[in-house]
Amino acid sequence: MSNTTELTRLFAQLRVAAPAGYSAGLHIRFASPIISEATYDPKWIQHYAVNAYALRDPMIAWGLSCEGAKRWSEIELPDPFNLWRQAAEFGLNYGVAVSCGPVQSRSIVGCARSDREFSDQEISKIATLVRTLHEISEPQTDLTQAQIQALRCIAGGDRHAAAAAKLGISESALKARLVSARERLMARTTSEAIQKAKEIKLL
């Protein structure tokens, strides 16, 4: 089973464990996660993004300073923008935050429900899922030279045929290199693979 398939399976389990949705940022580096996914109400996701709340979110502030799992109601940090109250207006009444990994590559996940607090058993299960997600999404720090060349050509604007000609290989061989680079970087698309390769200074 590939890591990408395993990530999909684990995110599906997290979706079941968080009835009102979740927000996951895996391996946050330079203020940006390598992998991110959110299943909260799309209206809340948009409201959160438009107002740049990631920079003001007490859950993220807690996650960057602590490791472990904690109910949102137990996070004792200032909330000057009333994010908890605003989130509740979108059905995110109760939640748990999970944070793990070294501070230079931290994963932070928030899970929500609308009806009640998460039980200790539910929190333990969610924390295990998050730690597993963190471990299997550890970004690769190397690519083969062939993979780097293929990504570099596409990043430079070459279409597949032109990139293949430039590298002296068939178009099918170029596509195979791009597929293997995507798999190694756990990227869904070539554009995403290029972005991840840039983030870890491979391009």
Rank of each mutant, 00 (worst) to 15 (best):
M1R: 01
N3I: 01
T4L: 10
T4M: 11
T5C: 01
F11P: 07
Q13Y: 02
L14T: 10
L14M: 04
A20Q: 04
G21Y: 07
S23E: 10
S23W: 13
S23D: 11
A24E: 09
L26D: 04
H27R: 06
H27Q: 12
I28M: 13
P33L: 10
S36N: 11
S36P: 00
E37M: 12
A38F: 02
D41Y: 03
Q46I: 08
V50S: 10
V50G: 00
V50I: 15
N51I: 01
R56S: 12
M59W: 07
A61C: 05
A61L: 09
A61R: 13
C66Q: 15
W72K: 09
I75M: 04
D79Y: 00
N82R: 08
L83M: 10
R85E: 05
R85M: 02
F90W: 11
G91N: 08
L92K: 03
N93F: 04
A97G: 13
A97P: 00
V98H: 08
V98S: 09
S99C: 04
C100W: 00
P102E: 15
R106C: 05
S107Y: 02
I108Q: 08
C111E: 10
C111T: 13
A112Q: 06
A112R: 02
A112W: 15
R113Y: 10
R116E: 03
E117T: 04
S119P: 07
D120S: 14
Q121Y: 05
Q121C: 01
S124W: 01
S124Y: 00
S124A: 15
A127P: 03
T128R: 11
T128A: 15
T132P: 06
E135R: 13
I136A: 00
I136C: 00
S137M: 11
Q140F: 03
Q140Y: 03
T141H: 14
T141I: 03
D142M: 04
D142V: 03
L143E: 01
Q145Y: 04
Q147N: 07
Q147V: 04
Q147I: 04
I148L: 09
I148Q: 14
Q149C: 03
A150V: 08
C153R: 14
I154W: 07
I154L: 15
A163L: 03
A164N: 00
A164I: 12
A164S: 07
A165V: 00
G168C: 09
I169T: 05
I169A: 10
I169G: 09
S170M: 00
S172C: 08
A173Y: 11
A173G: 08
K175M: 10
R177A: 14
R177Q: 13
R177F: 15
V179C: 06
S180M: 09
S180F: 05
E183P: 01
A187Q: 03
A187R: 00
A187F: 04
T189A: 02
T189Y: 15
T190P: 12
A193S: 09
Q195I: 02
K196E: 01
K196N: 01
K198N: 09
E199V: 05
K201S: 13
L202E: 02
L203C: 02
L203M: 03
